[in-house]
């Protein structure tokens, strides 16, 4: 039972990550794969605040999300002022740099990881309650991303993705929209990080690296970008697949690279065979009001 609850929690966390990443890369077209570093910032901030400063866990999680928000804005602001792939370069540099830094910072556990993170809900209410909390937050994230994508903001994101210069010429502040979306998506990832830390109670820098980036990217691509259910389907499929191969009893030295190859392979296969992903998005934006009124 504990195994199933843990799988549900993992799937829920990856739904949060994939849906918030879809907001950034899918709906807004911001090319970055460093989403897991904001997950890490949320996880470490929340864990350290609860463990070392005795901050109540829910508050620590929210501060963790805030830390992810602030750090993502600091990364995005200089690189999004110019168009192009600077965000991709800056965010990967930030991700890899911060991971290396964390490995050498013994106060936060160093390369060996941070242990004995205070648990939340598990002892008082039980693991199932924690799973419910994660699933509810995952559902709220999916709803929120849909709400943003199908409202007036969604229309803006679509236009910005299509043509930034024409978008600016209409009086829209492209930099502000990009930074806002990047910040919001990253803050949600930060919240997921807090949820991870206080359930598993152990985090290490390497779990937030490029393998995690490729996992989240694969979930969005395989599930279907710019769709409500794509990241959900992607997170479920790609969380269950690695779980399935663990049953083959392969040694960890094979299992890790195999999962990486599987993610990359799936992205390639889907890019060639079904670029729209399992859930295909309409190539024409429609607001949630549905068909517009005719005069």
């Amino acid at each position: 039972m504990e195994y199933i609850v843990t799988i549900i929690i993992l799937v829920g966390l990856f739904v949060i990550l994939a849906a918030s990443f879809d907001l950034i890369i899918g709906y807004c077209g911001l090319i970055s794969i460093a989403h897991p570093i904001f997950y890490a910032i949320g996880a470490y901030t929340s864990a350290m605040l609860a463990k070392e400063a005795g901050v109540p866990v829910p508050l620590a999680m929210l501060i963790g999300a805030g830390a992810a928000l602030v750090s993502s804005i600091l990364v995005a602001l200089p690189s999004l002022r110019v168009s192009g792939d600077y965000l991709l370069i800056a965010s990967i540099g930030f991700q890899l740099g911060l991971i290396e830094l964390a490995k050498h910072f013994h106060e936060i556990g160093g390369a060996g990881g941070l242990t004995n993170i205070p648990p939340f809900l598990i002892r008082e209410v039980g693991r199932e309650a924690y799973a419910v909390l994660v699933v509810v937050i995952a559902a709220l994230t999916v709803w929120f991303v849909r709400w943003m994508a199908t409202g007036p903001y969604g229309r803006m994101m679509s236009a910005l993705r299509d043509d930034e210069l024409a978008f600016s010429m209409l009086g829209r502040n492209a930099i502000w929209v990009k930074v806002s979306v990047f910040g919001i998506g990253s803050a949600i990832a930060g919240l997921a990080g807090g949820l991870y830390a206080h359930y598993f109670r152990f985090i290490e820098p390497d779990q937030f690296g490029l393998l995690a980036s490729s996992a989240v990217l694969t979930m969005v691509v395989v599930g279907g970008m710019r769709t409500t259910w794509g990241p959900v389907v992607g997170a479920i499929v790609l969380q269950l697949l690695p779980q399935a191969i663990t049953f083959f009893g392969l040694p960890p030295s094979v299992l890790g690279p195999l999962q990486g190859i599987m993610f990359t392979g799936l992205v390639l296969v889907f890019m060639f065979m079904r670029p729209q992903g399992l859930v295909a998005a309409s190539d024409l934006w429609r607001g949630r009001e549905g068909g517009a009124r005719h005069d």
Partner: peptide
């Protein structure tokens, strides 16, 4: 041209107001 291909004709035009309603997330 520089139109937005992922938007309908109406939605292309809807983005034109100087003060686009809903541009600020706080007001949304």
């Amino acid at each position: 041209l520089r139109l937005f291909p992922s938007l309908s004709v109406l939605d292309n035009v809807m983005l034109g107001p100087r003060d686009y309603p809903g541009e600020k997330l706080t007001s949304l």
